[in-house]
Write a protein that binds this DNA or RNA. Sequence first.
DNA 1: AAGGAAAATTATAATGATTATAAAATAACA
DNA 2: TGTTATTTTATAATCATTATAATTTTCCTT
Lengths: 142, 142
Amino acid sequence: MINKLKKMGLKITPQRLAILKILDGNTSHPSAEDIYKELKPQFPSLSLATVYNTLEVLAGGGEVQEVRIKSDKKHFDPNPAPHCHFLCRVCDNIYDLDMWPEDLQLPCDIKGNLIQGCNLYLYGICFRCRDKYKNGNNNNNN
Amino acid sequence: MINKLKKMGLKITPQRLAILKILDGNTSHPSAEDIYKELKPQFPSLSLATVYNTLEVLAGGGEVQEVRIKSDKKHFDPNPAPHCHFLCRVCDNIYDLDMWPEDLQLPCDIKGNLIQGCNLYLYGICFRCRDKYKNGNNNNNN
DNA sequence: AAGGAAAATTATAATGATTATAAAATAACA
DNA sequence: TGTTATTTTATAATCATTATAATTTTCCTT
Ligand SMILES: [Mn+2]
Ligand SMILES: [Mn+2]
Ligand SMILES: [Zn+2]
Ligand SMILES: [Zn+2]
């Protein structure tokens, strides 16, 4: 955790450690504001700009990846490896999906173009929301 | 062209026809502002809001697709079929790439999730820009 | 062809996520 | 412990997109 910051030549600060701690192993793909709201109680002086700055530098260093599956807001993923993201249009959650086109290993060459990065975004209805509909609307437990 | 509008129950206006004409067969993936700037000389009264409204209704009707390969701006594509987009980090152009994962035909089911839509975005250096570098910087014709 | 309702266009303001700025605080090194 | 570069913070600015409301236009009916 601390190593990630040192590796990038960044100073260790409580704010950065807290942000990294939230991200570590997190598969919920939080936005900058999500992280800010989660930390604000423990860090009353925390600034949203600090969260943005930290996420930007982590992304620039390849330690986290930006997920731009929604049109209005960026989300962040501590797993920097290219993998498939799925947005459920019903519950609005972003999920990892364990599928990746075999013929797309980076970096690669496609018709003379050098492919260095890739995003695969899927949209639909997650199995949880499908199940809810399947069970009918007679029991309205959202 | 006119049929697309009628099919969607929209009124035929000069502005909409002009926007559709620009889009027809266009593979440059223009933004709303690109289209606005191109039309403004011929339509001095044209409002940017009209361009946005038209693109939104066309996208909603499945006649064009939004391309969100850049983080700051939406681009539009008259080809509504899912296909692969590639952003060159050098020239900043968006290109179509003729590749699509075999195992991803829509709609489909992945682990219980219903997949209805998909975006595949690639990033790198296009063959044109690679050629320029290959030929060295001694002839500086950008 | 003229009238009129509904829809579209326009100018303009509002929104909201993100980025920039500059002063104050802090981390890390000697 | 002191010094300096970095970071945090509060705040303002940016800018693509969306909302609003008045004006204009389409298009169906007469
Ligand atoms: Mn993920
Ligand atoms: Mn395209
Ligand atoms: Zn869901
Ligand atoms: Zn290029």
